[in-house]
Design a protein around this nucleic acid. Structure first.
Length: 480
RNA sequence: GGCCCCAUCGUCUAGUGGCCUAGGACGUCAGGUUUUCAUCCUGAAGAUCUCCGGUUCGAAUCCGGAUGGGGUCACCA
């Protein structure tokens, strides 16, 4: 039995896409489950879309997510190089082999010619497809021409018969060969297209299972035909469902945030994101919703893979993130995750006191600032935000004055002592509890939604609390 | 449009012929706890299992068709 080897083949054309992480996760799980290897191969054959640095971002993102690979440009491996731009001579050799066997041919059509051809086909209501005009050229002549003339190499697709395969996820899929285009295999710049490179590399790197997105189904016949032309053993193909936007179209950056870096920057916990991804198209056999990567690895079975493309639901992701923040991460770990999100003026020495007050309120790690800023930052206070429809300004003024006086006399600054003092006042004066407490809350924090009032006051400290209450009180002392 | 894939609550899904008058989770709504928000607890609404035929004693589950959605039709991956 051959060692199972899976791979992802991202192209460094910009951002590290959440879809890449999704496919990587399942490739990793599949390999892991079979005691195999998971490889990352960089498909950088498109010079026009190449983005400097994009490759590193992909490694960093997968590392952040905790999805490790056994072989790749960064970690090396026995099948190097793992970057297609460094394998050009290999593709060229195989392209020549194909031409010599009559399975591929030189094509000298220009972009303009092809454009005219396609427009004509469309006008006639036909499917745009290469008409094979260069296929008719004399091979001896074309070989000569190819030495000096700009050209591509095209696959000579059989024009009869069917190509079929047993898809690991979808079962039998078949295509009529006549409907499959004579795909360009080598571009005029000497780089291979994906279709040639993927087949050559998957074979050379002994990939046994190709788990990729559903978008590749229609080009799979080309790949299979190539394997047969080379006389190579085919890997097992499995086409994963495609992640979708809310409108069910393929997940795109136009309609959604798809950048892993941006998830990191927004304050998503990597374990939560991975957990959420696991649940798209796959379900835990024990009906578990919240589980870690190890649990997933142990319970993963491709048979439980669903065929329908799942909508990427941010509501559920956010919920999941909250679960990890409040229940799954240890305190020390959480602090580490929060660290990058601390504003520069955040009082680190007060962290242990503040965290319990806001932990269950954090949805994103980045919420830390808006949830805690009043502890260490002063704010504008308007008189109107302290007023109440139910209570006269004079009463509000009295409430603040008496509270200040009472709290000034406290000997120990503990939340329960502050609370006792405030409650005594409230009861003695029969003030409306909701109004009175809200008044203090806003005066002290500037917000109507905050952690529990007295704990907040304790952490804030006596001086700061009295200062803010006094400031509020002054708003009611002046005439206007 | 051709070809291909798919089809259970708004969303993620359980379900592989009878245990389904379809279960769970997110979201939503209501109530409880409570000084606010959040957490937590309880409950509710929400799917004629896309539709129509067929097979069967019996179908969400099997078959066929229709419809709908998606993908793909580049010298991009």
């Amino acid at each position: 039995m051959k060692t199972v080897r899976t791979r992802i083949a991202p192209s460094p054309t910009g951002i590290a896409h959440v879809g890449t992480a999704y496919i990587a996760l399942f490739n990793y799980a599949f390999a892991h489950q079979h005691g195999g290897k998971f490889i990352i191969r960089i498909e950088d054959t498109d010079r026009a879309r190449f983005v400097e640095g994009a490759e590193q971002v992909i490694y960093d993102a997968l590392k952040w997510l905790g999805i490790p690979h056994n072989e790749g440009v960064d970690v090396g491996g026995p099948y190097a190089p793992y970057r297609q731009s460094e394998r050009l001579s290999i593709y060229k050799k195989y392209a020549v082999e194909l031409i010599e066997k009559g399975h591929a041919y030189y094509c000298f059509c220009t972009a303009e010619e092809l454009d005219v051809m396609r427009k004509e086909q469309q006008k006639q209501g036909k499917v745009p497809m290469y008409d094979g005009r260069c296929r008719l050229l004399d091979p001896v002549v074309t070989k000569k021409r190819a030495e000096g003339e700009r050209h591509v190499v095209r696959l000579h697709m059989p024009n009869e018969g069917k190509t079929e395969w047993e898809d690991l996820i979808r079962g039998k899929i078949e295509f009529e060969n006549v409907l499959v285009d004579d795909q360009v295999l080598m571009k005029s710049d000497g780089f291979p297209t994906y279709h040639l490179a993927v087949v050559v590399d998957d074979h050379l790197m002994e990939i046994t299972h190709v788990l990729r997105g559903e978008e590749w189904i229609s080009s799979t016949p080309k790949h299979i035909v190539l394997y047969d032309m080379f006389g190579w053993k085919k890997p097992v193909f499995g086409h994963m469902p495609l992640l979708r936007n809310a409108d069910h179209s393929k997940l795109s950056k136009r309609k959604n945030d798809v950048s892993l870096v941006s998830y990191m920057q927004k304050g998503y916990v990597q374990e939560a994101l991975v957990n959420f991804l696991c649940l798209l198209g796959w379900s835990h056999p024990n009906n578990e919703e919240v589980f870690d990567l190890q649990n997933f690895l142990k319970n993963f079975a491709i048979e439980r893979m669903q065929k329908t493309g799942p909508v990427f639901d941010f509501n559920k992701l956010n919920w999941m993130n909250g679960v990890y923040i409040r229940e799954k991460l240890g305190t020390a770990e959480l602090r580490g995750r929060l660290e990058p999100f601390f504003p520069t003026d955040f009082p680190r020495d007060k962290f242990d006191a503040i965290l319990p007050l806001i932990r269950e309120r954090l949805v994103l790690l980045s919420d830390i600032e808006s949830l805690t800023d009043f502890f260490y930052r002063d704010f504008q206070l308007e008189k109107s935000t302290l007023q109440s429809k139910k209570v006269e300004d004079g009463v509000v003024k009295e409430q603040l004055e008496k509270t200040i006086e009472s709290l000034r006399n406290t000997t120990e600054w503990k939340y329960d002592i502050v609370e006792a003092a405030v409650r005594v006042l409230q009861e003695a004066n029969t003030w409306n509890k909701g109004q009175y407490f809200m008044l203090l809350r806003v005066a002290v924090t500037g917000k109507t939604a905050t952690p529990p009032l007295f704990e907040t006051i304790e952490v804030l400290g006596k001086d700061k609390t009295l200062e803010r209450l006094t400031r509020a009180q002054k708003l009611f002392s002046s005439q206007k």
